[in-house]
Simulated assay, not measured.
Amino acid sequence: INSAKDVSMHYTEMENLIKQKYPDVNEVTMTIEPMHRSYSGRELMIGVIRDPVFGPAISVGLGGTMVEILNDKAVALPPLNEYMVEQMIAKTKAAKYLKPFRQLPAANIKALVNTLLSVSSMVSELPEILELDINPLIVDDRGVMAVDARIKVQISHQLTPYSHMTIHPYPHELIQYYQLPTGANICIRPVRPEDADMEKDFVHRLSERTKYFRFMQALQELTPEMVVRFTQIDYDREIAFIAVTEEKGKPKELGVGRYMTNPDGHSVEFALVVSDDCHGMGIGTRLMKTLMQTAKYKGLSFFEGEVLAINKPMLSLVKKLGFTIEPVPGDKEVVRVVKDLRM
């Protein structure tokens, strides 16, 4: 449609067809958008389908009229992060198509990544979405444009947030900010997979004594398996809050507290450690209170942990927070600390 005359002609044609099919319609209103033109555009598709077992699944690949023939698709379960999206794109045939070739500039990969992240957020927050197709999604050096989209929805009576998903999304609502007595700005937030290097550096900086208090064994460095375990978590069953500040323009971890739900579904086991140079600044107290508030909000009843009997700073902290301290039968080196969250 290239002119005002064409717009008028097509409007009249569509209006007549609609009134023939629906005689009771007296007035037809239409929305008109600019024609999208891109000499360097690549046609991709983004799809979402709700699996009865795994929940929503997001796919990306080559799009256009030959999408079924090309059968180019990479699939992942939301919530997606930037790393996961980049890996999805790299697995498709479209990955080469997006690079510069002949006289075409490289496509704007960042815009495509952001689009997939937005789709991930949408299907995570809206359980009503059963299916979604964006085809074609035009990607060029300037950005992206959804030329055609279809969404299939149903009324949702879901009461528990994210129960339609296998993996719970990153809980942005739990991020908080405050200031240390020293004037340093601190962010306490749930850990992310991207924090792997920062978590490894944090443990590396701990003294031998602090490492022993935290892990109850001699430990020099986190193994790759431990790094993954500590940073890639299921936010429904467990949580890990890290205290982060900026130092020389880079994020620096000052402390971390975490809990994991026990098999009984009513109690959690917690762990806490603060950097040696930050003891006495209230970071541990703040992390513990944040952990307990989160557990209580999720309907959990008991907050529990095992502490070395010689770990006097930790025992002092839990006493201040109202924990009871109990001996562990047959083990004089460890005590059990318990807090009833219902009180």
Results as ranks from 00 to 15, higher is better:
residue 3 S to H: 03
residue 9 M to F: 12
residue 15 E to Y: 01
residue 17 L to M: 13
residue 18 I to V: 13
residue 18 I to M: 06
residue 20 Q to M: 13
residue 21 K to M: 12
residue 21 K to R: 15
residue 36 H to N: 11
residue 39 Y to H: 08
residue 43 E to W: 02
residue 43 E to F: 00
residue 47 G to D: 04
residue 60 V to F: 05
residue 76 A to R: 15
residue 80 L to I: 13
residue 83 Y to P: 00
residue 86 E to A: 06
residue 87 Q to T: 13
residue 101 F to E: 11
residue 101 F to T: 09
residue 108 N to I: 08
residue 109 I to Q: 09
residue 111 A to D: 09
residue 121 S to F: 07
residue 122 M to H: 13
residue 124 S to I: 02
residue 127 P to D: 00
residue 127 P to H: 01
residue 131 E to D: 15
residue 137 L to Q: 00
residue 141 D to Y: 10
residue 149 A to N: 09
residue 149 A to L: 05
residue 150 R to Y: 00
residue 152 K to D: 10
residue 153 V to T: 10
residue 156 S to Q: 06
residue 158 Q to K: 13
residue 159 L to S: 11
residue 165 M to G: 04
residue 167 I to N: 03
residue 171 P to Q: 09
residue 174 L to Y: 02
residue 175 I to K: 12
residue 178 Y to P: 00
residue 183 G to M: 11
residue 185 N to E: 07
residue 186 I to T: 01
residue 194 E to M: 06
residue 197 D to R: 11
residue 200 K to I: 00
residue 207 S to D: 05
residue 211 K to H: 11
residue 217 Q to Y: 05
residue 225 E to A: 12
residue 232 Q to T: 14
residue 235 Y to Q: 12
residue 238 E to D: 08
residue 240 A to S: 15
residue 244 V to L: 07
residue 265 G to E: 11
residue 269 E to P: 10
residue 269 E to D: 15
residue 277 D to F: 06
residue 279 H to P: 00
residue 281 M to L: 15
residue 288 M to D: 01
residue 290 T to W: 10
residue 293 Q to K: 12
residue 295 A to F: 07
residue 308 L to R: 06
residue 313 P to C: 09
residue 317 L to C: 09
residue 320 K to P: 05
residue 320 K to W: 04
residue 324 T to A: 12
residue 330 G to K: 00
residue 341 L to W: 04
residue 341 L to T: 03
residue 343 M to T: 13
